[in-house]
């Protein structure tokens, strides 16, 4: 059994939600009979933005419900998509006549459950549109981009979508800007030790003492290769090489940079990584507009990190730069 500071493992999702609600001091409220939270006062006529997915990635997703961010978040069990009735309950709480945009990571479970919820919402006269995030370059080749997984790049897409949903008054327009942010985002992760699911108490994968998984997914899914642990600079060079050539990011591009802690990696390591990322981007003449660094999209106690880049154009930059405030992310 992996050690964790919890009570009954069956209660982790419920108790996580209780703790989050208290930490928000009324800025988010729970949806009745659903493991979902919404902003208490959503302006009339606003397009709703609903994010969601499995629990266990805290502060994603519910930590990003706030002003100029998501209007609501629905969370499933640890590493499992929320069920359709939960998604529907959150959808109803968010709909103010303009419809609801569903924004989530591209996983079979999430896709099916959100699709069922969308069908149920339609029966109740609520329009929805869906943007699935697939930023992980390690999870499938470019020609099968819609087979890719959504990882920490979620954060960039939620940031832009939140601002767009606050400013634009049609679901189609919010969808368009959000899909563009998704299309301009690329990420890649690595891990040196696994996370574990509280209810099983077991690590989600095994990895040797001196090994690193390149391209590790958010639930321990295999990446591109497993290798001997290497120095940070060499690792970062390999990761950025794959990310840069995928979009591709080119000289003269302006980007936002996210270095995300998957759970147990130290800020010291992230800063060492950042220094090399910046050196490589400077050499490639790619200008970094903003940097986010910390634990945004985690996989329990997995040790590792991911690098994400969002390429900006004038429109995305406008929405990225707007102030936003939530439990896990604030921008002034």
């Amino acid at each position: 059994m992996v050690k964790k500071i919890i009570n009954n493992p069956k209660d982790v999702v419920k108790e996580t939600m209780e703790g989050l609600l208290l930490a928000n001091h009324g800025k988010i409220v729970k949806v009745e009979d659903a493991n979902a939270v919404v902003r208490p006062s959503i302006p009339a006529g606003k397009v709703g933005l609903l994010v969601g997915g499995g629990s266990g990635h805290e502060p994603l997703f519910a930590g990003f419900v706030g002003d100029h961010l998501a209007d609501g978040a629905v969370s499933g069990n640890v590493f499992a998509a929320p069920a359709p009735d939960q998604i529907l309950a959150a959808t109803k709480a968010l709909d103010h006549g303009k419809g609801v945009l569903y924004l989530y990571g591209n996983y079979a479970g999430d896709n099916m459950n959100f699709d069922i919820a969308a069908e149920l919402a339609e029966l109740e006269g609520i329009s929805t549109k869906t943007v699935r995030i697939y930023d992980d370059v390690a999870s499938a080749p470019l020609e099968r981009i819609d087979d890719r997984r959504g990882i920490a790049g979620d954060l960039f897409v939620i940031k832009v979508a939140g601002a767009a949903a606050a400013e634009l008054d049609s679901l189609d327009e919010v969808f368009r800007v959000t899909a563009k942010a998704r299309d301009f985002t690329r990420s890649m992760g690595v891990a040196i030790s696994p996370g574990s699911i509280p209810e099983t108490g077991q690590p989600t994968f095994e990895i040797g003492e001196g090994e690193i998984e390149i391209g590790m997914g958010l639930h321990g899914e295999a990446g591109v290769s497993r290798e001997k642990l290497m120095p940070a600079d060499e690792l970062v060079s390999r990761m950025t090489d794959l990310i840069l050539k995928d979009l591709p990011f080119k000289a003269g591009d302006e980007v936002c940079l996210l270095i995300n802690n998957l759970g147990a990696t130290t800020m010291m390591e992230l800063l060492i990584v950042n220094r090399k990322v910046r050196e490589i981007l400077a050499e490639a003449k790619i200008n970094v507009h903003d940097t986010m660094m910390g634990s945004y999209c985690t996989s329990q106690e997995m040790a590792g990190f991911s690098i994400s880049l969002l390429k900006l154009d004038d429109e995305l930059k406008k929405y990225y730069d707007m102030p936003a405030e939530s439990f896990a992310f604030t921008k002034r």
Binding site: G76, N77, A80, A81, P82, A83, Q86, M112, I116
Partner: peptide, 15 residues
């Protein structure tokens, strides 16, 4: 099953 399992299994076995 659909409401209580969640994830891909809930959607598939529920359906």
């Amino acid at each position: 099953l659909l409401a209580s399992i969640g994830g891909a299994s809930g959607a598939i076995f529920g359906s």
